[in-house]
Every structure is written in C-alpha cells, then in structure tokens.
Design a binder for these strands. Sequence first.
DNA 1: AGGCCCCACGAAATCGATTACACGTCGATC
DNA 2: GATCGACGTGTAATCGATTTCGTGGGGCCT
Lengths: 353, 353
Amino acid sequence: MANIKDVAERAGVSVATVSRVLNGHGPVAETRERVLAAVRELGYRPNNVARALRTARTGTLGLVISDLTNPFFTELADAVEDAARGLGYSLVIGNAGERPEQQDDYIRTLLDRRIDGLLVSSAGTGSAMIGEVVASGTPLVLLDRTVPGIDAPCVRADGRTALTELAAHLAALGRRRPAIIVAPAGTPTGDERLDLFRTALAAHGIALPDERVGATPDLQHTGGRRVMSGFLDLPEPPDAVLATDNLMALGAMDELRARGLRVPDDMALVVYDDVPWFAHTDPPLTAIAQPTRELGRAAVHTLLERIEGRRAESVLLPAHLVIRRSCGEPPARTPARGTAPGQRTEEEERGSA
Amino acid sequence: MANIKDVAERAGVSVATVSRVLNGHGPVAETRERVLAAVRELGYRPNNVARALRTARTGTLGLVISDLTNPFFTELADAVEDAARGLGYSLVIGNAGERPEQQDDYIRTLLDRRIDGLLVSSAGTGSAMIGEVVASGTPLVLLDRTVPGIDAPCVRADGRTALTELAAHLAALGRRRPAIIVAPAGTPTGDERLDLFRTALAAHGIALPDERVGATPDLQHTGGRRVMSGFLDLPEPPDAVLATDNLMALGAMDELRARGLRVPDDMALVVYDDVPWFAHTDPPLTAIAQPTRELGRAAVHTLLERIEGRRAESVLLPAHLVIRRSCGEPPARTPARGTAPGQRTEEEERGSA
DNA sequence: AGGCCCCACGAAATCGATTACACGTCGATC
DNA sequence: GATCGACGTGTAATCGATTTCGTGGGGCCT
C-alpha cells in the first residue's frame, strides 16, 4: 500500500507538504492539485496507526457491554455506534457476556489500544479495572448501570415516572398482589427499581411484601422462570408480575405457559425493557420502555465532552410505560381518564418498525 | 502513562532490553527480574499503537455485519468475537444496517485502521469496496452471504439437508400447498433457499408455484407481513409458509394473528434462523437452525489461515431442522419413523438456554 | 595460553505519519 | 528602494515500540 512518501515523490514535493494538503493547512493552488492527483493515482490512504501514534488520538471509542445477545443491549450498542459514527468516531465493541473477568479483560485491551474514550455498561458489581481506567486518565462514561465509588458520569434511564404510571395502571385494573422479579439486593439497578416500584405502589395503598420480591443472580431466562415458579407456589400467588429484564420476562412467560396459565386473565405481566419482540408476543406485553437511542446518543455526547476536557454531568432520561394488553383491559383509543403524560399506547409507537 | 523508556530508565537498562524481556527473546536472569519489577512498579502497558506501527500487525480483526439488531447476526457476531478473543485477536464490529453505502464506509474505515483481516457478511448485492479489499491485499473471508465475482473464501450454512427434512416433515403432515417468503430474485442466499426448497418438495410430488413465492426487498418485519397478507388473499391460500428470515417470520405471525388465524391449525409456519425467541412463542416455531457458533468459529479460523499466508477453502456447514409445534403434530418423544440424522426435537437442544 | 563462540546488551534505524522551526520569495508599505 | 509580513515549503524531530547490527565479556575447547 502506498504511503505518504510515495505520494510526495510522485508529486515532487516533501512529505510535509502532502500532509498539509491532506489536513487542510497547506497550499491552495497548483501544488495542491499535484498532490491530490498523486493521491488519486496511487489510491493513497493515510495510515491511521501512524497518525494515531503521532497525534495521540485514535478516533476510536470503546464500548464494553454487559451482554450483547440481550436485545436491550444490542439496541443500545446500535444506538451508540450510530451516534459515534455520526461524530466521526468508530467504535470497538467488547462483549462481557455478564462475566466480570471478561469485562476486565476487554477494558484492558481497549486501554492498550489507546482508544480516545470508553463507555462501560458494567457486568456485575464493582470492578478493579474500572478504577484503573479513571486512574489512566482515559475519559470514561458509565452507561445504564452505575458503579459505586467510581467518579465518572453515568447515563441511564430514570424509571420513576414509568413505575409510577405502572402502579396506577395496576391499581386501576384492580391488581392488589403485585410481585417483582429483580436482581439480588446490592445491585444498584435492581435495588433502585425495587424501591421505586414499592414506593409507587404504596401511594395506592398496595403493599409489596418481601415474599413477592423474587431475586435471581442470573439475569437470564432460567432465573426468571424459577422465580415465577416460586411465586405460583405461594399460598397466595401474586396477580401481577413485573420482570425487571426482558430475558427474565421470557422465562416467566414460559413458566406460566407450562402451567397452563393465561396472561392477562390469570396473571398480569409487565416487562422492563421494551424490545421489539414483546410487541409480537401473545398477548403483546405492557412494557417499560427505556429511551434506548437517546441513551446511546447522550452517552456519546457526554463522553465527547470529557474527551474535549470539559466537565460532564450524569444524564437521567425518563423511561415511559407502553400499555399493551398483558394486564387486562385493552387500551382505549380515546382514553377514559386521559393518558398521563409520558404514557403511550401501542398505536403511537414504532411508526416504522 | 508510562512508556518503555521510563521502564528502561528505572531498571537501568536500554529500551531494547525491556522490549526483549517483554517479548520473551531476552535475558533470563537478574536483569530480567529488574525489568519486570520496573514494569510492575510503573504499571507499564505497552502501547499497542506504536507496536502495530512497527510490526505492521494490529492484532485486530474487522467484522462488518449486515444488521446487528437482527438476532441471527447478533449471535453470529457474538460467536465470531468469542473465537477471535480465544485466539488473541480483538474484534472491531461495524454494523451496516443493511445499507450498502454504510457498509462501504465501514470497510474503508477498517482498512485505514490496518486491521489484520476482515470478515464481511455483505448487505445488498455486490459492492465496489469489497473488490478494493481484495486489491489491498487484506485477508478477506465472506460470512453467511456470498458476493458474486469476489475471490475470497465464504463460510456459510448449507440448507440442503434441513430443507429436505422440512419437505418430508410437511409432506408427512399432509400439507400440500406450501409457500415461501424470500428475498427478491438475484439475491444469492434467497435464490438458493428457494431452489433447494422447491427441489426438496418436488421429491414428494408437491409443487411450489410462483404465486406462492413471495419476494420482499426489505428483509424486515413489514415485508414479511405484507407477503403473508398477499398469500392469504389468494383464491387458494397456502397451508404452510416458510419465512427465510426471522424478522419476516415475525411479520407473518403478526398478520396471521391480526386475521384471527391460528398456528398450526389454520397455517403451518416455519422460520429460517432459529433465534432463541422462537422457542418461546405460542406455539413454539419449527425452525431451520444454522450452526451459528460453528460458523463464527470456522470464519475466524479460515481468516487466520489467510492471514498466515495459507490458501483457505470455503466452508459449508449443515443447517438442521428443529421440529417444534408450528406445523401440527407435537414431536413424538419416541420418534415413530425414526428421526432423520441432523434433525433434533426441542428437548435435545439448548441445554443451558 | 590462545582462539572461538555464544550470550547479554546497547546504539541506532525503522515503521508512517504530524508539526515546530527555518528559510526563501514575493507583494505591500512607507 | 529597503523593510516587514505573510505565505509556501523543506528539514528534521517526534510519537513508542521492534529489530538489526555491533561489541564486550565469559566459558569452553584444544
């Protein structure tokens, strides 16, 4: 492959001149044309490795994602990538597969690659490497999941309004025994969702006792199924379940189906994370939709702020409730009591899906 | 961040010695210890950019994938990444989003980054940039989709046995009017699946007339739905539909549900690409499963062959039929007529999903 | 004792770009 | 007509590693 020296020779100028032409600082007239012609004829493309070494900027961002096969994170990664591309950065994606040690491995690799900035949606709690990122001076932004004790802005969705809406929705439909499937205590995201849901229910005089809080360490299908099974074996089973992750909801649905129970007749089911598939299940699932694309965009923008040396704040974007039919009562086309702000019914969303 | 010079100074040796210690060509005794101690104390990590410039090896592979949000490709990307990691390479993923111009853009970026090799699962047909990859001398392997006129090995799944099994399955269940939802004529993958299906059906005396071949340019949800709608409006609608992509199958299911039709009673439905979700739909869908993880692994291995200068052949791995309940007749636990080799029933698969 | 070889190690070139600095030329200004 | 600035351009340093080549010293052989 041709390098800058070849171009310089062919154009009869020095390498410095070629570099200047290509970076816009150079001459404007005849010399410039000669250089550009040489570039064209040789099919020259600057070597980004060399450029990165000299300028200490790689034009690359890193994204370490907890689990790429989880559709919520896929969509998030897609959004981040779009935003990064739009700003002239390319993205290296590292998939931790929910394994903290693999996450650390990836973070290390990315630091060695001298990426310009790093986005991390952390698997598990805490991580020695994340501390090292901060220490290394590489700009860092946390995505979707906070990490206690790490001094970096975090971009994530705020479930408060969505969960408030959900509590109202369940109360209005007469569901009095809600339950939640959640990550174990100590997981920031899980704790927060539990607290918010419990508080929101309390406002309607509905309790969420511990027996109806099902924790599962694996945030997967099997975990969701096991917890749902436990709920159904209670002397007084719940009449509504919120699964705080889409894979867990899938497991919960399977358990219901295996026992011949129907949604929403025998059990209302709500899923946190509105991935496209849930609009196509039977029945379509009422969901808490995080503003995935906006999260991705905000994360990249926040990261760029830090890269450019500015101070950047954490970002909280509101999630909203998407009412479908998994809690009963089909959504009214003309809402009876008015639709609360932020709520949407199925018709309004996904215009082009 | 500390560099090799800092380490050399601290250890009281030259940079050459440090480099040799770190790369294993160096001394073994006391000097070595001093160097390693200095490395530890300074937290030194070699700068991969500089190393790549000197050695002309980046330790990075590129993967340009047609559509990351399509679960089949997500799984494929995940598999490729696992395999690459296992061999000490990291992976830059570029998501073309089924847009050829974005694909070209990504290929160019990756070439500029001087990746060691490139995997492409091409969006659309043909592409000027793919030719340039070959011309640039960068090792290239095509994944899942061939590109006519490109001289590079291709790793993909062979649907012949799966479609043969499917034809037998449909024939045994008395389905006589099959249909197929497929990419437009001229798309290599689409054409092949259509031909194989038609041939396999013919062996059972079943015809697949053109009116029951529904082409859709967008390989998406809406395309599948539209084609299914067309099928249902035929004077003699089909009694079984094969959707040759998972998103199109989703659209087809939606159309059936919208018309109040039941699977499998009113219509048998089979999906090409067995993504996890289809095991959890109601009813679970019979599917043609491509050996995704093996494809990923084979692709990386083939690419490494090329990187190391060896000639590499194309790889064809057999897909198999996963029988669930979307064509009628629940799978027998003890197969009545014996299970054909390669076929599996739901119980056997996905041990840990 | 002398000669050889091997090993450890340092000096310096190298990869391909960017950029600070110096210099020459030309036009404008007084 | 001399001076000053601006502009275009080349020379060379630089980024941080790897690697070639050369040298000095120690061990082994005869």
